[in-house]
């Protein structure tokens, strides 16, 4: 009689199975989320990098690299950091030295103020929303002379 009650109808088994899977799925999801939540507090500090380090490195690239804008003496091949060659301050050079096609990395807009003129260049992933801006006092190499100038650097965070 008891055996008959358990295996009575196929629908009973199916309903019990569904309840079991429902409870199992709910508990498994909760357990997984709890484990993940607790461990975030324990280990996430390992993968943190100092804030502004990445931005600092990219700004250094714009000012130090001869592939970007830094002036390079043709005879000695010496590169002069923080001295921008006016002939190099072009979109083509920026695209070559900072070839960011997507928004996984920071985006930049650079405005050079020199000789009462302003020239603005933007990286390929620039979307026009300012996150942070800073002005750097730099030098420019223009027609054989080195003069003071200002570079306004706008930055957008990676998405």
């Amino acid at each position: 009689m008891q055996l008959k009650a358990i295996h009575g109808k196929r629908a009973d088994i199916s309903a019990r199975k569904m309840i079991f899977y429902g409870i199992f799925g709910f508990l498994a999801a909760i357990t997984f989320l709890l484990v993940a939540w607790f461990s975030v507090y324990d280990g996430s500090y390992l993968s943190k990098i100092p804030p502004d380090l990445e931005n600092y490195l990219f700004v250094q690239r714009f000012l130090n690299s001869n592939l970007c804008f830094a002036f390079q003496d043709k005879e000695t091949e010496r590169v002069y950091p923080w001295v921008i060659d006016m002939t190099k301050f072009r979109q083509e050079n920026l695209d070559n030295c900072y070839n960011a096609k997507d928004t996984n990395v920071k985006a930049y807009s650079l405005t050079l103020s020199h000789n009462n003129k302003k020239t603005t260049l933007t990286t390929k992933n620039w979307e026009g929303f300012l996150k942070k801006g800073e002005t750097r006092q730099i030098f420019v190499y223009d027609s054989g002379n080195i003069r003071r100038a200002e570079l306004f650097i706008e930055m957008q965070d990676a998405k």
Binding site: L46, S47, I49, L53, E54, L57, F58, Q60, R61, N64, S65, N66, A70, V79, P81, C97
Partner: peptide, 18 residues
């Protein structure tokens, strides 16, 4: 993730070297 960030930072740092 730490190793990935470290290596990426190194590439960025070397790219800014004259």
């Amino acid at each position: 993730l730490h190793i990935a960030k470290d290596l990426a930072m190194q590439i960025n740092a070397l790219s800014s070297l004259p």
